[in-house]
Design a protein around this nucleic acid. Structure first.
Lengths: 265, 265
DNA sequence: TGAATAGTGTCTTTCAGACAATATGGA
DNA sequence: TCCATATTGTCTGAAAGACACTATTCA
């Protein structure tokens, strides 16, 4: 689950890997509880965003083509260096605005893992606090606004035709997909991925896109409709392709699913 | 659940809160994908640890009394400034070793939330990457090794007799307790909180301490014994206080609980 | 008419909650 | 003997999986 959360059967005990403060920074004594202003190691903190949505029945992620070394020509998730007077949530918005030109990008955002491996950026020590950003299906323009940024199907990331990812950004996307998946299990966040009004078939296909499984329509329907606050019936019906017209629904105003919506096997 | 993960019904769209790089740092252009070495805002990244275990049927957390301002005399979780050549997991170990003198402190550690509120430290911008550290029940010496550090019952943190917490460290402890609780639901981590061999009563009381609820012994037993790899029977019996002697078990070598072990109502 | 999708109903299995009944030690 | 805890077993209800069947549209 957690990419970084690993068991330490035998953890370093402070002798095995004796700590020695590096030359630059960390000048102050290591006494309990103090972080004097002088003590400033050269660690750069960036905020990177796994920005996801569902489009045309596919889970897609916004990537930016790198114009400079290292990893020039590879694709990365949008990110910015955290500014000292800025909250991480604001930095996440700024990253998507600056790199892709999409204003007001999130219907939902939450923290993901911290990626902190020492060699992940060849230039300096860069620690990345990552954020899951979710776009409403209808909103983002099909191809982003700034040149060099576009939505890629998550399924294409392994492909030879797909984008090659820079640094460990493949892990960042994976963490975002995984987190989005568990949110769909336990909350009504899926309703943010479809445009109102929506049919239960559309909602179900959003789940299928994120989870990569097929769900039994009858059982899905039973679960959604029996959960208070998940969806609310609205007037009218809609014909999608062929088949019987489907009832229309809007978001129900908030639901916690317990037990969760089961994710097949 | 996630303290920092908040919905943004209307997120800043890049105009409402126009970003202006602060004076110090962030000198480089904000062009896509580059973090030149010159671009180093004054953000200090620390690693703080919610270090928990169960002792005498109580969930306890290791706290360190602050010897200097700000918040002198208040209690904080162990933490250190991240060194540029050090992984966060190693920094977490170093924090507990340095602040409490407990070597090889963790049977398990994993990332928690990032605490990044702008004013959380009055001195500089300090962002805290927090870690949940779990100690084996038997191991940690009852009162820590270094003066100024000790285990506090988590239940005492709200009390007038309990420790006053520095900064937002109460939130860090809360995040750790919450995460430990969900790990107990879904994994066999509880077996790390009891000394081998253990009785199912001891294991159940570990759950009760973390969750703060009472569990039905018969149903708890059924769930644990029916989950492959959770516990393994070992020879002998043990009498705890009064009552019938209990069978003894050891860790089963790894289990994922699905469905999870339900946490009462 | 046939294909495709939506909607309704039912049967079965799994599993948790509640709780009774028995087992076995110490005070 | 009484009390406390462990262990076993049973009954019940909630909820998911599987699937049959009907409804309704378009090609």
């Amino acid at each position: 689950m957690a990419k970084q959360g690993k068991k330490q059967g035998r953890a370093p005990d402070g002798r095995g890997k004796q700590h020695k403060p590096s030359k630059k920074g960390a000048k102050g004594a290591d006494g309990p509880g103090g972080y004097p202003a002088a003590e400033r190691p050269d660690v750069v903190l960036v905020v990177d965003v796994a920005y996801l949505t569902v489009a045309d029945g596919e889970l897609v992620v916004l990537l930016v083509e790198r114009g400079r070394e290292p990893h020039r020509g590879r694709w990365s998730v949008p990110g910015v260096v955290l500014d000292p007077d800025e909250a991480a949530a604001d930095a996440a918005v700024r990253a998507v605005v600056a790199r892709a030109g999409i204003p007001d990008p999130f219907v939902h955002q939450e923290q993901l893992d911290v990626f902190d491996a020492v060699g992940r950026d060849p230039r300096t020590r860069v620690v990345s606090a990552t954020v899951l950003g979710v776009a409403a299906s209808a909103r983002p323009p099909a191809g982003g606004t700034l040149a060099g940024s576009r939505w890629w199907p998550v399924a294409a990331l392994g492909d030879p035709d797909g984008p090659a990812l820079a640094f460990d950004h493949g892990d960042i996307v994976a963490a975002g997909v995984e987190r989005l998946g568990t949110r769909l299990e336990h909350t009504d966040l899926a309703t943010a991925l479809v445009a109102e009004p929506f049919t239960l078939g559309e909602l179900r296909r959003a789940y299928e896109a994120v989870w990569g499984v097929e769900l039994e329509p009858a059982n899905f329907r039973r679960k959604v409709l029996s959960t208070p606050g998940f969806v609310a019936r609205t007037a009218g019906k809609r014909i999608v392709g062929t088949g019987r017209p489907a009832d229309l629904y809007v978001r129900g105003g908030g639901a916690v699913l317990h037990p969760p919506l089961p994710r097949g096997r």
